[in-house]
Design a protein around this nucleic acid. Sequence first.
DNA 1: CGCGCCAATGTTAGTGACTAACATTATGGG
DNA 2: CCCATAATGTTAGTCACTAACATTGGCGCG
Lengths: 188, 188
Amino acid sequence: MVTPRTLRTRARILDAALDLFERQGYDATTVNQIAEAAGVTPMTFFRHFPTKDAVLVTDPYDPLIAEAVGAQPTGLPPLERTRLGLLAALGDITPTEDSTARRRVALVATSPSLRAAMTISTEATQDAIVERLVADGVDRLDAAISASACLAATTAALLAWGSAPSDVTLARLVRRALAQLAPAGAAS
Amino acid sequence: MVTPRTLRTRARILDAALDLFERQGYDATTVNQIAEAAGVTPMTFFRHFPTKDAVLVTDPYDPLIAEAVGAQPTGLPPLERTRLGLLAALGDITPTEDSTARRRVALVATSPSLRAAMTISTEATQDAIVERLVADGVDRLDAAISASACLAATTAALLAWGSAPSDVTLARLVRRALAQLAPAGAAS
DNA sequence: CGCGCCAATGTTAGTGACTAACATTATGGG
DNA sequence: CCCATAATGTTAGTCACTAACATTGGCGCG
């Protein structure tokens, strides 16, 4: 049941949180402060976001990415399949970026606990890719290695993007990251 | 001041913690339980380990690894330097493994919060590698990409080792992981 | 062999993230 | 305009972790 009221409250909490995080840092900001600034009870905060870090960390792209990886030629080694799949998915994801994406990423880059939360969330994506590769007969360990390496490179690019000049696009950085994992001297 | 008494207490806490974690799971075990089992106050626990997860997560290998990476030929692309450096460092690290290493890794594999803690700790290694590469004139983003990709692959191997048959060595799995990041068709 | 010093431990009191069970408000559909 | 029900509030609690101060216990020295 997604009522308009829910959306408004959620947006107020999110705005208050981003504002406070940017002004006084993530760790120095308490959920109580966020709740108060949003005109709401701490309890209500947790009804909208399961954890404090969930305000900043979300990625609903897992199925999309796993599918893109699966769509790459089965003959390729798993690393290459994953790499190409991520590049292919990139086009679908980038346009969706809302205006706060960069602020969120910049904030995540500032706190170890946030980067840890992001890792946990990335694990879901990794699992999705691994399952997809395993379904095609790839060894589970090989799949995990490929997926985690590609995602780590992508994450490095993402974090860099958070504090990059505003004319640098995320897609550009990710392409650069994944290019380093390409078979020697390959184009694209 | 590293007195014998300190070492004994620390060992008692560590034993109690490993035992409880294995019997009832990491998240279900409280610091109070560990302290009680070790015949000690919760406060004392935190004097020996900064956090609950510190009992399981430690790696003091950063300088060693960074040095090994730096020792690789400067002409190579950063990913390859990092990869070869990690392989070189592997020999120095493996023999040091104490008998609880595998138990610890197996436990880390079971809980997302522990894997997150491990990521934070791996970041230190990553930073050491990045600084070393940057010192040789490598672009910082390129360095971060290489280091994080190689370490992610290594971590995947490490986690797999935790629940692998006991005749499978860590070095073997790590070599397999890093081999996937090798330039196409290169040996070892 | 006992005594005093200081590291190691204990005590108390508190904060902040989160949870559960139950009470209250308010919104939008009939 | 009213009522069912979603959304919020209240209260009370747990657990990881911290700070300040009090206490104990082991080891070196006389």
